[in-house]
Simulated scan of single mutants.
Amino acid sequence: LMGTTSFLSRARALLRIRNQLVRECLAELLSTFIITLSGAAQKITSFEMKGNLLTSYLAGALAVMAGIYIAGGISGAHMNPAFSFAMCLMEQFPWWKFPIFMFVQTLASFLSAGAVYILYYDAIWHYSNGTLTVSGPRETASIFATYPADYVSIANGFLDQVIGTGVLILVIMGIMDTRNKAVPKGLEPVVVALLVLSIESSMGSNCGCPLNPARDIGPRLFTYVAGWGPEVFSRGNGWWWVPLVAPLLGAAVGAFLYQLFVAFHYPEEDSDVLTEQGSIVLVNTTIDPDIGMLPKEKDTGGTVPAGYPPPPCASSTVSPTVPNTPLKKS
């Protein structure tokens, strides 16, 4: 036991990363990897065992819950560029971090698709009769990325994703808003998982309900290089760009609808309480708006002293506990 403790202490001293941004990226990488791994692996089980998509949706929702528990206190467990985009619009997340998070989330999804391919290599080739196809009765490309049903047009699929992602972000806004009906602390990931399950099971028939640009484009790129070929981009009349663009628009719609119908109308006399508790319409003052660093990071040249715990990210689905200040009136 002493030897193990000593080894862990030495490993921590050697491998510990102090840079805040790098720690957040590592947390995003791991949590996004988990949600893609679970969702794609469950789809393969449905293919082979002739199951239904509900089991796949359930696995994906539980993976979202796991991802939030893994990274919620470090990076906010965005795991989705649409969520990061909404947080930027709400001034809860710096814009300069958005492309970084989107790249990390996409990379994680790409790597996760590769892991699923390796894990179920024999099953995929057995099911496909030795041919990796994007369409037809034995296609396997939809294990990794989403494709529209044959009867769904590009316009209908685009609207589908705007509405689905809009509902997702709108309800998450309500979950995060401490002025609204509070979710018991620590159960936010469970509630978000139930929300994802509800949306996927009720809105998944048109195009598989991607809702997440990184979750779709990362595995799609993997299938392109792994042998499925360019048809992964041409199937469905060039469908590939819809899960990349529509969720971002849906996130903006959902975020602003919550502000317009709920958040803008709270009594102003609650402002002192809200400053202490934090709220989704409040700005995280622990982040310098110019360089996006925590105050302690600026003092130490971009690092955090040993033993200094990072505050929960204000853009997480876990209720923030850091001090916040109200947005300026427009």
Rank of each mutant, 00 (worst) to 15 (best):
Y120F: 13
Y120Q: 09
A123K: 14
Y127Q: 03
Y127F: 15
S128K: 01
S128M: 07
N129V: 03
V134L: 02
V134T: 11
R138S: 11
S142F: 02
I143M: 13
F144M: 07
T146A: 10
T146H: 08
Y147W: 00
P148F: 00
A149P: 02
D150I: 13
D150L: 13
V152C: 07
V152P: 03
A155S: 13
A155H: 05
N156A: 15
G157W: 00
F158V: 06
F158K: 01
V162F: 04
G164K: 01
T165N: 05
G166Y: 00
L168A: 01
L168G: 06
L170W: 12
V171M: 07
M173Y: 07
G174H: 01
M176I: 06
M176D: 04
T178M: 13
R179M: 07
R179E: 04
K181D: 12
K181Y: 12
A182V: 15
P184T: 11
P184E: 15
K185N: 13
G186F: 00
G186W: 01
L187V: 07
E188F: 02
V191G: 03
V191C: 07
V192R: 01
A193N: 05
A193R: 04
V196K: 02
I199N: 08
S201C: 13
S201N: 08
S201E: 07
S201V: 14
S202A: 10
M203F: 14
G204D: 11
C207D: 15
G208H: 07
C209P: 08
C209Q: 02
N212I: 03
N212W: 03
P213E: 01
A214M: 06
R215Q: 05
I217G: 09
G218H: 05
P219F: 02
R220F: 01
R220D: 07
L221M: 13
Y224S: 10
V225F: 13
